[in-house]
Computed example of a mutant assay.
Amino acid sequence: MPGRTFAIGDIHGDLDALLRLLGTLPPLDAADTLVFVGDYLDRGPRSADVVALLRALPSQTPAKVVLLRGNHEDGWLRVLERGWPEFVIPPQNGCLPTLRSFLGRPQPAEGEGMADDEVEPLLKGTFFPPDVVEWMQQLPYWYEDEHAIYVHAALPKGPNGFEHPSTTQKRLAMLWCRDDDFVREYRGKLVLFGHTATKYLPPELSDYTPEDKEDAWVGPCVIGIDTRCGKGGFLTCVELPSGQVYESR
């Protein structure tokens, strides 16, 4: 008999929300699985602590722990490989808080820019410890169990419809795409995803509190669980197969 799976949305450097959410979960055993759908970094104030907690979690719980790659981890890997100023400079991406978190510096005040000695490490990502870089490089793009398929952003669309992660050539789409057709038209095995905040998904198609656009989004075959943690929202977890929802708020 398959165990329970607890799928947890985008964290974005909000350690307090992560701790609160984990504290709401029932006792876990070796048959259970925790799946995190990516975006552990940026925007929130404690990205380094979030990463440290998640990396230590497999030794602290009997449950299986699956940590997927998000577009923000992927973005930083691109920065490290060849630079990407368009990713790290815009304040809305929240990259400066990540640098200061890893360097142990005070978080930037609203409107505060980079200090002179932060420009090069931010543009090159050199503030990341080597073991954290290696950890990000090893994060998988997707996961599947008896209950569902789990990806950061969406399943990519091919000439014959939406593609399974094991067969698609469009791996980056699973991290970066925002496809209205996916949430409206996909029919297949249940998919849980983050990346697109639920407030931007069509509320009339959600079976879960459609009157609350900030809440989890539950469609016929897809469940959105990015409830804007680290961006003024909260962290959401969906338990399968029961459908029980847990929140940090």
Rank of each mutant, 00 (worst) to 15 (best):
P2I: 05
P2T: 15
T5F: 00
T5P: 02
F6N: 07
I8S: 04
I8V: 10
D10C: 09
G13C: 07
G13F: 08
D14H: 10
D16K: 13
A17H: 15
L19Y: 02
G23K: 12
G23F: 13
T24G: 03
L25M: 04
P27M: 01
P27G: 08
D29F: 04
D29H: 13
A30W: 07
A31M: 02
T33M: 00
L34G: 02
G38R: 07
Y40P: 03
L41E: 09
P45Q: 14
A48I: 10
D49Q: 13
L54R: 15
R55H: 12
P58C: 04
S59H: 10
K64G: 02
L67A: 05
L67N: 12
G70D: 13
W76D: 00
W76F: 15
R78H: 08
V79W: 05
G83V: 13
F87R: 06
F87Q: 04
V88P: 05
V88E: 08
P90R: 10
S101K: 13
G104R: 08
R105C: 03
Q107A: 07
A109F: 13
E110K: 08
A115K: 15
D117F: 01
E118K: 04
E118N: 07
E120F: 05
E120M: 09
E120G: 00
T126Y: 09
F127I: 12
F128D: 10
F128R: 04
P129K: 12
D131R: 01
W135P: 06
W135D: 13
Q137K: 15
H147M: 03
A148G: 03
A148P: 05
I149K: 00
I149Q: 02
Y150C: 03
Y150L: 04
Y150T: 06
A153N: 01
A154G: 00
G158A: 01
G158L: 01
G158K: 02
P159Q: 07
G161W: 06
G161D: 03
F162L: 04
T168N: 10
K170N: 11
R171M: 04
L175V: 01
W176Y: 14
W176K: 14
C177N: 07
D179C: 02
F182H: 09
R184M: 06
E185S: 14
E185T: 13
E185N: 12
R187G: 01
G188L: 03
K189N: 07
K189I: 01
L190F: 11
L190D: 01
L190H: 11
F193P: 00
G194D: 09
G194T: 02
A197Q: 09
T198R: 09
S206A: 11
D207N: 13
D207Q: 14
T209G: 02
T209Q: 15
P210M: 09
E211M: 02
D212H: 06
D215N: 15
V218Q: 04
G219D: 05
P220V: 00
P220G: 03
P220Q: 09
V222C: 14
V222K: 10
I223V: 14
G224C: 10
D226C: 09
K231E: 14
G232D: 08
G233Y: 10
F234C: 05
T236S: 14
C237Y: 15
V238I: 15
L240D: 05
P241V: 12
P241W: 07
Q244A: 15
V245I: 15
Y246M: 10
Y246G: 00
